[in-house]
Simulated assay, not measured.
Amino acid sequence: MAVERENLLRVTRIYAEEAALELERGREIIARWPEADIVRIASHWQIPEVHGDETNVARWVRIKTEALVLGLKKSVATRVNGRSADFIAPSLSNGCAMACSYCYVPRRKGYSNPITVFANIEQITRHLARHVAARGPKSEPNQCDPEAWVYDIGENGDCSVDALISENVRDVCDLFRMTPTAKASFATKFVNRDLLEWDPAGRTRIRFSLMPATTARVTDLRTSPMADRIAAINDFVDAGYEVHVNFSPVILTPTWLADWAELFDQLDAALHARAKAQLACEVIFLTHNEGLHEVNLGWHPKGEELLWTPAVQEEKRSQNGAVNVRYRHPLKAQAVAALGDLIALKLPYCRVRYAF
């Protein structure tokens, strides 16, 4: 279910930490919505009327549309990753205006998940510049990148949407534009053509998340249509971005393999030669969570018909101790192999960076 750009964010209330209001980026964000009510808060994690209130389930999408939170990133640190990227950079934001029903980020926020923008961007960029400088050149290629250290800058949100709110994403991409040993990376489900004017000089990798359109219409609420995401790839390559794709999440519907075959045909037909030559993908099968399942039943039960399928799922305890569910072994192993074979057949030029 798509949403028009102008309706994605109609901010009427900004919850703001006092310290964030004192920073230049905080003042810039406030100025973008001069009619919005400013509600001063002690912490962006502690807003009773937004987070942790079960009655907010029915207002899930409305809160995402109308509320914005402005805070400071307290823990400015970079973590080792090694899968999608070499490192996870400090978040520029937390939360999203879109409403994919399988998203893991709302699990930390309770019953609503508006965007929290961090105003201390100068502290974040200084940290990243020091971290990149300390690494020096990459001495050995790996699956993240053969030459550059890759920093995921959008772990807890969607940078294409965040770029509608502030200059945070552009500031970080500009930093990497001038950094020959590293590059930024983020996944997105929103086509923001403003980014085509940024001239990233090959130092930003955008990963467009793709899945069959019939499934996306049920689970990817308020996102750009799948056809728009595919159509944008050539333009972003031409604008100087490295563009990969995320086949994610892979949801095992009764027609899943045929649906993915159709998607791969659409992708192959749309891409020009330069886009194909640089293409790589990540493949991530669905992981769900019982708590999120219960929340989703309150606002979008139709999506749970696809996501919550206990007959073919088993428990998986994550690194942070949360109990999630994933497809049972060996069903998942068979599905991973089948999709890999299909990619090799339909998109032989597309390197699979990892699949799980």
Results as ranks from 00 to 15, higher is better:
Leu195Met: 15
Leu175Gly: 03
Thr78Lys: 02
Arg207Glu: 09
Leu196Met: 05
Ala231Ile: 08
Gln46Lys: 11
Ile63Phe: 04
Leu267Ala: 14
Pro254Phe: 01
Ile63Val: 12
Leu70Pro: 03
Ala311Gly: 09
Ala273Tyr: 02
Lys109Ala: 12
Ala344Trp: 00
Glu24Lys: 10
Val105Lys: 00
Val172Trp: 01
Ala184Ile: 11
Asp174Lys: 07
Asn113Asp: 13
Lys346Thr: 00
Tyr15Gln: 02
Lys332Pro: 01
Asn324His: 06
Thr255Tyr: 03
Ile30Arg: 05
Phe247Ile: 15
Ser224Ala: 15
Ala148Thr: 12
Cys173His: 00
Met178His: 14
Ala227Gln: 09
Tyr104Thr: 07
Ala31Met: 04
Thr287Cys: 10
Ala67Val: 15
His293Phe: 10
Val57Asp: 14
Pro310Val: 14
Gly291Phe: 06
Glu122Ile: 10
Ile30His: 01
Cys100Thr: 07
Ile233Pro: 02
Val218His: 08
Pro90Ala: 08
Lys316Asn: 11
Leu68Tyr: 02
Pro301Met: 08
Ala2Gly: 15
Ala239Asn: 03
Ala36Arg: 03
Ser75Ile: 12
Ala261Trp: 00
Thr125Phe: 01
Leu9Gly: 02
Asn192Val: 14
Asp53Val: 05
Arg274Trp: 03
Val325Pro: 01
Leu9Glu: 05
His131Ser: 14
Arg83Glu: 15
Gln334Lys: 13
Ala335Met: 02
Asp238Asn: 14
Glu294Gln: 14
Lys74Gly: 02
Thr181Val: 15
Leu175Tyr: 00
Arg40Phe: 04
Ala227Ile: 14
Cys96Trp: 02
